[in-house]
């Protein structure tokens, strides 16, 4: 009895597992994101969930931040109300995969436009030009830029190239600490164990805004990262529609307003809207 019932349990469980695994989502027949927005009035948008000021999941389950505002504006221009948007968390490692598999319709997640990524997905935008910068303790007057990092301890997130760049190009004597999340880096900088955190200035601004009076962004960006909106590689119509939407957002002042509301608290100087790169 024991044996037979055990096997039955396994068989049932295995069957139901394969069923859920293969069931997946129904294939979408909409060729472009424009069609999907028009027909379904619904979009799934990939965003970051752990970056204050850009894309952050808050306790009530909603998302806030600059990326989110951009995503909502673009969706609205495509004909989708905020209630029709499903935000889905993406991490750096799975953004291309999510787009290719159709798990998300577009990605607005501090997603830098690079040639390597253009092999797999296409980009509208840029909707923001960030630059690599340093986040230091507010009372730290000595750290004024990447050149001052010699002998200092620098934090970055594992697997990111920015920190390596600082080391090779600016401060060979800097020591590098790799953490898994920005939150851990921030904790260590606050705790005084490390001296600075490096990544894109707008991300840093989000953390500075979270700890007013304790952290500041140095404010001398030493690279350019163009944030784009990622979508399926062959979706030319979608790219054009999103670019038009961004253009409108830049023109009517919503862009500046969104940026000010998201990271303005840190004293981050709101720049001019970037030039779109249509292709």
């Amino acid at each position: 009895m024991f044996g037979r019932s055990l096997y039955a349990v396994f068989a049932v469980a295995a069957l139901s597992l394969t069923a859920t695994a293969c069931g997946g989502q129904a294939a979408a027949s909409n060729a472009s994101i424009v069609d999907k927005a028009k027909n379904d009035k619904k979009l799934v948008i990939g965003v970051k969930a752990d970056q204050p000021g850009l894309g952050l999941r808050t306790p009530d389950g909603s998302f806030t931040g600059f990326d989110i505002e951009v995503a909502k504006y673009v969706a609205k221009q495509l004909g989708v109300e905020p209630s029709g948007i499903t935000f889905k968390e993406t991490v750096s490692a799975n953004r291309e995969a999510f787009i290719e598999q159709g798990q998300v319709d577009m990605v607005v997640a501090t997603y830098s436009i690079t040639d390597a990524r253009k092999q797999k997905v296409s980009f509208a935008g840029p909707y923001f030009v960030a630059g690599q910068d340093l986040l230091v303790r507010a009372d730290d007057a000595a750290l004024t830029g990447p050149e001052a990092l010699n002998g200092k301890k620098l934090c970055s997130v594992a697997g990111s190239t920015p920190a390596q760049k600082v080391k090779t190009e600016y401060a060979k004597e800097a020591q590098l600490q790799e953490e898994r999340t920005y939150s851990s880096c921030v904790d260590r900088v606050l705790g005084g164990q490390l001296d600075a955190l490096t990544t894109d200035n707008v991300i840093l601004a989000g953390y500075a805004a979270q700890h007013p009076g304790k952290l500041k962004v140095v404010g001398k960006p030493f690279s350019t990262e163009k944030y784009g909106i990622g979508l399926k590689k062959d979706d030319t119509a979608g790219r054009k529609a999103i670019n038009d939407a961004l253009e409108k957002m830049f023109a009517d002042g919503s862009w500046t307003k969104a940026l000010q509301a998201s990271v303005g608290a840190s004293g981050f100087a709101v720049p001019q809207a970037p030039q779109l790169e249509r292709y």
Partner: peptide, 22 residues
């Protein structure tokens, strides 16, 4: 490590990102 939504990632990092209380 691959961004799966489990207790350590969603719970710990999600909460810490909001309240900086790792």
């Amino acid at each position: 490590i691959v961004g799966y939504d489990e207790l350590v990632d969603r719970g710990l990092n999600g909460i810490a990102a909001n309240f900086s209380n790792v």
